[in-house]
Lab assay of single mutants.
Amino acid sequence: AGSTTLRAVGKLQVRLATKTEPKKLEKYLQKLSALPMTADILAETGIRKTVKRLRKHQHVGDFARDLAARWKKLVLVD
Rank of each mutant, 00 (worst) to 15 (best):
E26M: 13
K52Y: 14
R55M: 15
D78H: 05
L32A: 03
R7A: 14
L6C: 06
V51I: 08
V60A: 00
L32W: 02
A69E: 13
K49I: 11
L67A: 04
A68M: 08
R48M: 15
R55Q: 14
K31C: 12
E26Q: 09
M37V: 10
T50K: 00
T38C: 01
G2I: 09
T5K: 05
L35V: 06
L76A: 12
I47A: 02
K49S: 14
R70A: 07
D62F: 00
A1N: 08
G10A: 15
F63D: 05
P36Q: 07
G61H: 01
I41R: 02
R7G: 06
A68P: 02
K11V: 12
H57I: 12
K19L: 15
H59S: 11
L29E: 01
P36S: 07
P36M: 05
P22M: 04
V51F: 01
K73S: 12
G46K: 05
G2C: 11
K49R: 09
L42T: 07
L67F: 00
R7V: 14
L74E: 08
L32C: 03
A1R: 05
K24F: 08
L25M: 09
R7N: 12
D40M: 15
Q13F: 03
K23P: 05
L32F: 09
V77I: 06
M37S: 03
T5Q: 07
T20H: 08
H59V: 13
H59R: 09
L42Q: 01
H57E: 05
L74G: 02
A8E: 15
L6D: 04
T18G: 11
K73N: 11
S33D: 11
K31H: 08
M37F: 00
D40E: 13
V9R: 04
L32T: 07
T45P: 03
K56E: 15
V51L: 08
D78N: 05
I47L: 06
L25F: 01
K27F: 12
D62T: 06
L25V: 03
E44G: 04
G2W: 08
G61A: 05
P36V: 09
A34I: 10
K27G: 12
D62M: 02
K56H: 14
L25I: 11
F63Y: 06
L54K: 02
K49D: 15
T18Y: 10
E26T: 03
K73Q: 13
T38Y: 00
V14F: 03
K23C: 13
L76N: 11
E21H: 12
A1M: 08
A69V: 09
T45D: 01
H59P: 01
K52H: 10
I41D: 04
T5I: 14
E26R: 06
T20N: 10
A8M: 11
R53E: 15
M37K: 03
K24H: 10
G10E: 14
V60W: 00
R65D: 06
K23A: 13
D78R: 08
E21Q: 11
L74H: 05
K52D: 14
A1T: 13
T5P: 08
G46S: 06
E44L: 07
T4R: 05
R15C: 15
R48E: 15
E26Y: 02
H57D: 13
V14Q: 13
D66T: 08
L42D: 05
T50P: 03
L16F: 06
M37T: 00
V14I: 10
H59T: 12
R53A: 15
L74N: 07
R65P: 03
G61C: 01
L67G: 03
L35I: 12
R65G: 04
A64L: 05
I41W: 01
T38D: 09
A17D: 15
Y28I: 13
L76R: 10
G46V: 01
M37R: 03
L16Y: 00
K27L: 12
T20M: 12
T4H: 09
L42P: 00
G2Q: 10
K23N: 13
R53D: 15
V9D: 03
K19A: 15
L6G: 06
K24L: 14
K72E: 11
A68S: 08
P22T: 09
Q13G: 08
L67K: 02
K27D: 11
P36I: 09
A43Q: 10
A69F: 06
D66S: 07
T18W: 13
L16V: 04
A1V: 09
L16H: 03
L12M: 08
A8H: 06
Y28F: 06
R15D: 15
S33K: 07
R15L: 15
T20L: 12
L12K: 01
L76C: 12
V14K: 08
K56C: 14
R70S: 10
P36L: 06
W71Q: 02
G61V: 01
W71A: 01
Q13A: 10
K27S: 13
Q30L: 06
K19N: 15
K52R: 07
K52A: 13
Y28Q: 03
R53M: 15
D66P: 00
K27P: 03
G2V: 10
S33G: 08
Q30V: 04
K11D: 15
L54V: 02
L42C: 05
L25P: 01
T38A: 02
L35W: 02
R48P: 02
M37P: 03
L25N: 00
V14D: 15
E44Y: 04
K23V: 10
T18D: 14
A68E: 06
V14Y: 08
V60C: 04
D40S: 10
K24P: 01
K27T: 10
L12V: 05
K11Q: 15
R70V: 04
A68D: 10
G46Q: 06
G61I: 01
Q30N: 10
A64P: 00
V75Y: 11
T18F: 08
A39M: 11
T4L: 10
A68G: 03
K73P: 08
G2Y: 08
K19Q: 15
A8K: 05
V9I: 04
V51E: 03
K52E: 15
E44N: 02
D78P: 09
A43K: 10
R70C: 07
L54W: 03
G61Y: 01
A34N: 12
L6N: 11
K56G: 14
E21N: 13
I41Y: 00
T20C: 13
L32V: 04
A8C: 06
T5C: 10
G61N: 00
L12H: 00
L74D: 04
R53G: 14
T5D: 12
L6Y: 05
L35C: 03
T50C: 07
T38I: 03
G61W: 05
K49F: 13
T20Q: 10
L54A: 00
L16T: 01
K27W: 07
P36C: 07
D62Q: 10
A34S: 11
L67D: 00
R7L: 14
R15E: 15
R53P: 01
T45Y: 02
A34C: 12
A43Y: 08
K11H: 13
T38Q: 04
V9S: 03
L12T: 02
V60S: 02
I47H: 02
H57T: 05
K11I: 14
K19I: 15
R70E: 07
R15S: 14
D66A: 05
Q30I: 07
S33A: 12
T4N: 12
R70W: 00
T5W: 09
K23Q: 12
W71N: 03
L76E: 13
L42H: 01
L67I: 06
L29S: 01
T4I: 11
D78F: 03
L12W: 06
K56M: 14
A34K: 09
A8G: 03
G61S: 07
K56P: 06
A69R: 06
R70M: 05
D78T: 07
A69P: 01
E26F: 13
L74M: 09
Q30H: 09
L35E: 02
K11M: 14
L54D: 05
T5M: 11
A69C: 06
P22K: 04
L12G: 02
L35D: 02
S33W: 04
R15M: 15
K31S: 10
L76F: 13
V77W: 09
A34Q: 12
S33C: 06
L32S: 01
L54C: 07
K52L: 14
K11F: 08
A34T: 11
A43D: 09
V77C: 10
L74K: 01
D40Q: 13
D66N: 11
A69K: 08
E26N: 07
